[in-house]
Amino acid sequence: METLIASLTHQRRIDSESSLAPARQIAQATWMAAHGELRERWRATDLARNIARDYELLVTTDLFGWTLVERQWRRIGTAGQHTRTSFANAQDAARLIAAIRQRRASAHRRIGAEYTRIQL
């Protein structure tokens, strides 16, 4: 019973952190998209459940002023998959970035392992 209560408390903390001021997250991502490069990487591992995931996000601006959002996801040790999306408006890119961050924050509830941010 204590484990269940602890996990619910932990889940509530993650949910509240992921919904922490979405406007602030969008503003930060908009600034980063307009002024330079943003690179983030997350990793989720749980050996008991055979979970070994890696997720990388790169936001840059191309020569024409468009904001590029590149995402790569994979099982650790494999090539994985990637996608690139371009936006004429940095605010649209920021909304995608905020959604990606929120999705990574909800991983504990979805896959049973929490993503941790890796310093690059």
Rank of each mutant, 00 (worst) to 15 (best):
A33G: 03
R74F: 02
R84F: 07
A21W: 11
L38I: 00
L4G: 03
G112C: 01
Q119E: 14
I26G: 01
R12L: 13
E114K: 04
R109P: 00
S16N: 13
E17F: 09
S18V: 15
R110Y: 06
T30V: 05
L63W: 15
W73L: 01
R39T: 07
Y55K: 02
S18Y: 10
A33L: 04
V69G: 02
D62Y: 13
R24K: 11
D54Y: 11
Q25R: 10
R39K: 13
E37I: 07
S86T: 12
L58A: 10
L47V: 07
G77L: 05
W66P: 00
Y115G: 00
E17A: 13
D92K: 14
A52T: 06
A94L: 04
V59C: 05
G80L: 03
H35L: 00
H10W: 07
Q25E: 05
M32F: 10
A23N: 14
T61L: 12
I97E: 01
W66A: 12
L47H: 11
A34C: 08
E2F: 10
L8N: 12
R13F: 08
A105H: 10
E37P: 01
T45G: 03
R13N: 09
S7V: 10
A23Q: 13
T9S: 12
T85A: 06
E17N: 10
I14M: 12
R43V: 14
R103L: 08
A44V: 02
R110L: 09
I76A: 08
A93G: 03
S106Q: 15
R104I: 13
A79W: 05
R75S: 05
T30N: 06
H82Y: 13
S86Q: 15
R101M: 04
N50W: 08
T9Y: 09
E2Q: 12
Q81W: 12
P22Q: 01
